[in-house]
Design a protein around this nucleic acid. Sequence first.
DNA 1: GACAGTCAACCAAGCACTTGCTTGGTGATA
DNA 2: TATCACCAAGCAAGTGCTTGGTTGACTGTC
Lengths: 206, 206
Amino acid sequence: MATAKGKAKSAAVAPAPTISEEGNRRGDIVRAAGRLFREKGYSATTIRDIAGAVGMRSGSPFYHFKTKHDMLLAVVLEGIRDIHAAVEVEARKDSPPRARFEAMLRAHLRQLLGEEGRDFAAALLHESRHLEAAELAEITALKDRYEAMWQALLKELKKTGEIADDSRTARLFLMGAMNWTVQWYRPEGPKGIDALAKQLAAFVLR
Amino acid sequence: MATAKGKAKSAAVAPAPTISEEGNRRGDIVRAAGRLFREKGYSATTIRDIAGAVGMRSGSPFYHFKTKHDMLLAVVLEGIRDIHAAVEVEARKDSPPRARFEAMLRAHLRQLLGEEGRDFAAALLHESRHLEAAELAEITALKDRYEAMWQALLKELKKTGEIADDSRTARLFLMGAMNWTVQWYRPEGPKGIDALAKQLAAFVLR
DNA sequence: GACAGTCAACCAAGCACTTGCTTGGTGATA
DNA sequence: TATCACCAAGCAAGTGCTTGGTTGACTGTC
């Protein structure tokens, strides 16, 4: 028989492997799924699309994943983990708040817009609603931990007087300005990601 | 025979009726489709869902629309037209720039988050990609006209010194902060829409 | 005011196709 | 010889959409 491998099940409780840790073909599937989910959306992407993108037949991905749904979960988890890791590196440095803020913006935007992470990030932002309640709760928890980092920094920026409002709502405005770039940013355009981060920092701070 | 009525075709060139102008059942379908598209997404919504929501059998909506695709177009067009109309009213007044800015924010957010327009707005923001190139070009043109109103106001605000950056990118940051509210705003929460508009104005202006 | 005719707005049934997923089997590798 | 990673084939359910027919409200005519 050939159902999904044992190690792949119960992703909601197990630590669940990051892409770099897991077998190559499984990682290929997650990457292809991520790209297709971003381009066409989860529901409009078929198993045959994903299988074709990695040179498999339509039944074969189910050796690695129990359901299409599990693929989405893997993609979304990869998305939140990558962003968190990238931004946390900058948040831990003890440079002055404003410099740290800019560095965090850079890291976040690179994940959103750069070739490496944008597929996972887009799925995280736009396709999470197709997850079920339990899974959604899991990634919501991760998201909360992530956004707490930003909240902490806003508090610091308020102390130094570089921002007027450090409320939850203000943080969500900031997240919106950042995450919305996915809708309009074009890498072939004139402005680079780092310049964008700088401009956003200037837009928000005073 | 019973294919889509003559008056319903070639929506890309004709003025296409607003919801309030058209027959009640057609309007019912557009409203139901809008709600379902927001809740489940375009691809995950079936004709049977839409038909069921208005008390029809699965084949009957095709008396009013040639394709499911055309329903999406109707929903998205309704979305951009409503927002444009609501905000334009405020933009035309000749109150001082800051007051006009706040009023426009209010109008935009009411469309996004209020019961009346949120279904259409959500479809506009999230499901437009499922349109074909020609239709997308049409709504992009409308969107450009809409955003030009904001750009003009930013220019005014720059002159009075109430904003530092009136570039296209700055406008897109603002749009992001606004449009992202769809992802997190809960009407049952403590904060009202008008208070939100006020806070956003304070966040962006100095 | 009775009555045939018209037409908008549906329904019942189903067709061709696509969907996620399953099953038994197979070649390569250890 | 056992396991991994896949394929070939297909199944049941669901998909958008079509077709011919029905119903009830309205119309003009005598």
